[in-house]
Computed example of a mutant assay.
Amino acid sequence: MSGPQANWLPDGRRLHLHHGPIDMIVGIEGAGRDAAFQRAVARFGALLDELVAELPRLRRPCGGPVEAETAQRMVEAVRPFAPDFVTPMAAVAGAGAETILAAVLAGPGVSKGYVNNGGDVAFHIAPGETMTAAIASPVPGTVTLRAWDPVRGVATSGAGGRSHSLGIADAVTVLAQGAATADAAATMIANAVDLPGHPAIVRVPACDLSPDSDLGERAVTQEVGTLDVCEIATALEAGRGYAARLVARGIIQAACLSLRGACVTVGETVMIEERDPEHA
Rank of each mutant, 00 (worst) to 15 (best):
T221D: 00
A134K: 14
R275I: 09
T156Q: 02
G118W: 02
L195H: 07
R59T: 15
A71M: 05
R260C: 08
A169C: 14
V115T: 11
V143R: 07
A180V: 07
F44E: 00
R73C: 00
D49R: 10
L17M: 09
E268N: 08
I201P: 03
G239Q: 11
M1Y: 03
R152M: 12
T130Y: 13
V41S: 01
F123R: 05
G63I: 04
V143Y: 02
G161A: 12
M1E: 08
D194E: 08
R152K: 11
Y242P: 04
S210E: 12
T187L: 14
R79C: 06
A233K: 14
R275D: 01
G158A: 09
V204K: 13
M1K: 14
P4L: 05
I25N: 01
C62L: 14
T156P: 04
E129K: 11
M131I: 09
R60S: 15
L215M: 15
I125A: 04
P199K: 09
A255T: 10
A238G: 01
R33Q: 06
R73I: 01
A192G: 00
P211F: 04
K112A: 13
L17T: 11
I100K: 11
A233V: 00
G128L: 05
E223I: 11
E69I: 01
S137K: 04
M1C: 06
V154K: 07
V270N: 00
V229K: 13
V229G: 07
P150Y: 03
D228T: 04
V121N: 06
T181P: 03
L257S: 06
S213Q: 03
A186V: 11
V86W: 02
I252L: 07
E274G: 11
M74P: 09
V66C: 00
F85L: 14
R146C: 13
D84G: 03
D208K: 00
I135P: 13
A106E: 13
D84H: 14
V266A: 10
V52A: 15
D170P: 04
H124N: 02
E268K: 02
L15P: 05
H198V: 02
A134T: 14
P88A: 03
R275F: 02
L257I: 14
I125H: 07
N191E: 06
V41E: 15
T130W: 08
E76W: 06
D183S: 07
R13K: 15
P138M: 02
S258M: 08
G197H: 02
A31H: 13
A93L: 09
E278S: 14
H16M: 09
D34Y: 01
G128C: 07
P138K: 03
D212H: 13
N116W: 02
L257P: 04
A133R: 15
R162E: 12
E29I: 05
A77I: 00
V193D: 00
R14E: 15
M188V: 07
G128I: 08
Y242H: 06
D208E: 06
A190P: 10
T181K: 14
A186W: 12
V104P: 15
G45P: 12
A106T: 06
R14D: 05
L48V: 13
W8L: 10
K112R: 11
E129S: 12
V41K: 10
A186S: 12
